[in-house]
Simulated scan of single mutants.
Amino acid sequence: MPLFIGTSGVTTLLGPAYERLKTHLGVRGGPPRWLSRPLQYAWLDEEVFQKLGSDARPMVAGPVPASPAREVSPTELVDAWGCVWKQREGVPYYEIVEPPLQNATREDIACYPWPDLANPARFHGLAARCKAIQDAGHAVVFLSGLTLFEQAYIMRGIENYLADMLADEDFFTALIARMKALAIPTVRALLKEVGAYVDVLVTGDDLGTQESTLMAPADYRRLIKPHQAEYLAEIRMHTKAKIFFHSDGDILPLLGDLAEIGVDIINPVQVNAGKMADTARLKREFGKRLSFCGAIDTGWVLPRGTTEDVRAEVRRRIRDLAPGGGYIASAVHCIQPDVPPENMLAMCDAVREFGRYPINP
């Protein structure tokens, strides 16, 4: 059974958790590297990948040449989209404080200085790097950095954008369509360079809360799903890579829709969010159409449980999700600083011990 840890922002560790793990393992490593600087997603050292037994390695495109991210101060930065991020004292990641389109009109969307995401310079040399990962026996997990609904609400502010869905459909549609117009040529240029050497392509849109979907499923199907379908169809045209779709929260009502538009892998399977807790049901109802990545609880088990609790959690998720294939073992989202290194290692060891086919329930 494959184990994903460190393979993407949503399967890695936050910076402080990673430093704690390195100390525990006796790994010196180099200066910090980030899969996402604002979100403090750590890029693991190869020695740590090897010690943990992760079966894949991440890859990302280069920076945007025309509008690169820049650091304003040690606690403030501006990303390539023009979003201002700040780090508050005691918080291990940055948060957006100034959505650049929070007061925008439809006319402002047309004249906004959008980043040059499809610039070929961003993808130069990536094919050779991806091939080297495959030649070393690992899967290539490419972080597209492209979302539609999520990037739109980052630019607009989530409260504003959800209100637009109900009160200003024209603006809502204009903004998500603009995200799609940026994403499609970008993924086309990316996959022209690396499509043959990518095993998993990461995308997603956060669509859920702890108890429900963010919006009524009917509104999702009318206003978001058609744009996602067009974007995923473009990916399918240029690669055989599996499409990895990340969404937190209870998205059970939307799993059939996501399978219908071409999603292969659902992540993170947030088991402390509503009906996503019943992983046996997920497998029973969707296991023929979707694979699952995640499900090892980061809400209680990893940060507060014993190593035996962790082993029991891994066994449970393997029992529910792995029979017949289709499960990639991983923690639910990025591992936080309160997770003891011993529990991280117990998770990885239990996956190796129990994740062998044929699965014995």
Rank of each mutant, 00 (worst) to 15 (best):
T307L: 01
E46G: 06
G355F: 05
I359W: 10
I265P: 01
L44I: 09
M344K: 00
W114T: 06
D199C: 11
F286V: 07
K288S: 15
S8T: 12
K283N: 07
A139C: 02
G204V: 05
N343H: 04
A218S: 14
H227V: 15
N103S: 14
L148Y: 00
A181M: 07
I266L: 11
E169C: 09
H333P: 00
G294E: 04
S73P: 04
C334M: 12
W114P: 02
P268T: 04
Q151H: 13
T298A: 11
S73Q: 05
Q134S: 13
E89G: 11
S247C: 08
I296F: 07
E234K: 04
P58G: 03
A69E: 14
D55L: 00
I5L: 15
P341I: 03
P2Y: 11
E89Y: 12
L3Q: 01
Y41D: 13
N103W: 12
E159V: 13
K242W: 08
I243P: 01
L345R: 05
V27T: 09
V271M: 06
F354K: 02
H24C: 12
L255F: 08
K242Y: 09
C348F: 05
V78T: 12
Q134D: 07
L254N: 06
P32L: 09
F49N: 12
R311T: 11
L162T: 07
T213R: 06
E169P: 11
W43M: 13
E46V: 12
A128N: 11
G29K: 10
N160R: 13
T298G: 03
Y161S: 04
S73K: 03
V84T: 15
M1S: 10
I224C: 10
E76T: 15
I109R: 04
G53T: 09
I158V: 14
R311I: 10
F4R: 01
F354A: 08
L101G: 06
L207T: 06
